[in-house]
Computed example of a mutant assay.
Amino acid sequence: TSYLKRPRMHTVWANGVDLDVFYGDKAAWDKYAKATKSSKPASKPKPAGPKWVKETKTYTLKTAVKLRTGASTASSFIAVLPAGSTVKTDQAIIQGGYRWVRQPRSNGYGYLATGPANNTLEYMK
């Protein structure tokens, strides 16, 4: 390890820290000298997850489908919509192995799967 020595008086603080010797090379010194207290390490970008996309469509159900409170099979269901029902949607997403659509309702939204991710319109026309 190399070190740089300041050509000044030897200074030792009360706690025994010697400020006259830096153990490192010139590149390391330059790096520390340019650092500021406001410097923060670069944060890693968060992985992009599924995103809702705008989709204004009307579907007719091929089979009965559960209308749910969220876009997940774990969400509570509001009702079972029978085959032949018409559903108007405003957004869609693929997550949890299914393609989901959001249905605007008078008291919020209902969510229903249109099919598994490998056949996204299996339940709809």
Results as ranks from 00 to 15, higher is better:
Lys62Glu: 13
Ile78Glu: 13
Ala42Ser: 04
Ala27Trp: 07
Val101Phe: 00
Leu61Asn: 02
Ser39Gly: 11
Lys51Ser: 15
Ser39Ile: 06
Lys44Val: 12
Pro50Gln: 12
Leu19Val: 12
Pro7Met: 06
Ser43Val: 09
Ser43Asn: 09
Leu19Ser: 15
Ser76Tyr: 02
Ala33His: 13
Ile93Ser: 01
Ala83Cys: 01
Val87Ala: 08
Gly108Met: 07
Val101Thr: 14
Val87Phe: 02
Ala113Asn: 06
Lys44Gly: 04
Ala35Lys: 10
Arg6Met: 08
Lys5Ser: 10
Gly84Gln: 10
Ile93Cys: 08
Gly110Ala: 04
Tyr98Lys: 04
Leu81Met: 13
Met124Leu: 14
Ala113Lys: 03
Thr63Asp: 11
Pro45Ile: 11
Tyr111Asp: 07
Tyr123His: 05
Thr36Leu: 08
Tyr59Lys: 02
Thr36Gly: 09
Ile94Ala: 14
Ala64Asp: 15
Pro116Asp: 00
Lys66Arg: 14
Ala48Gly: 06
Gly84Tyr: 04
Asn15Ser: 08
Gly49Lys: 10
Ala117Phe: 10
Leu4Gln: 12
Tyr98His: 12
Pro104Asn: 08
Gly96Phe: 03
Val53Ser: 12
Leu81Pro: 02
Pro41Arg: 13
Ser106Phe: 03
Thr73Cys: 08
Leu121Ala: 07
Lys26Arg: 14
Asp30Ile: 03
Lys88Gln: 12
Met9Glu: 12
Lys46Asn: 06
Asp30Met: 07
Phe77Cys: 05
Asn15Asp: 15
Trp100Gly: 01
Gly24Glu: 06
Lys40Ala: 14
Gly70Tyr: 01
Arg8Met: 10
Val17Lys: 01
Thr58Lys: 09
His10Pro: 01
Thr60Ile: 05
Ala117Arg: 08
Val21Asp: 02
Ser85Asn: 05
Val17Leu: 05
Tyr109Glu: 13
Trp13Leu: 15
Ala74Arg: 01
Gln103Met: 15
Lys125Thr: 12
Arg99Gly: 05
Val21His: 11
Leu121Cys: 01
Arg99Leu: 08
Glu122Leu: 15
Ala33Lys: 09
Pro47Lys: 14
Val17Arg: 02
Lys40Trp: 03
Pro47His: 09
Val80Ala: 10
Ser39Thr: 10
Ser106Gly: 04
Lys54His: 02
Tyr59His: 12
Ala28Gln: 14
Gly49Cys: 13
Val17Ala: 01
Gly110Tyr: 05
Arg99Pro: 00
Tyr23Pro: 07
Tyr59Met: 02
Thr36Asn: 15
Ala92Leu: 04
Leu61Trp: 01
Gln91Asn: 06
Thr11Ile: 15
Lys44Thr: 10
Tyr123Leu: 03
Ala79Asn: 14
Tyr109Ala: 14
Pro116Met: 06
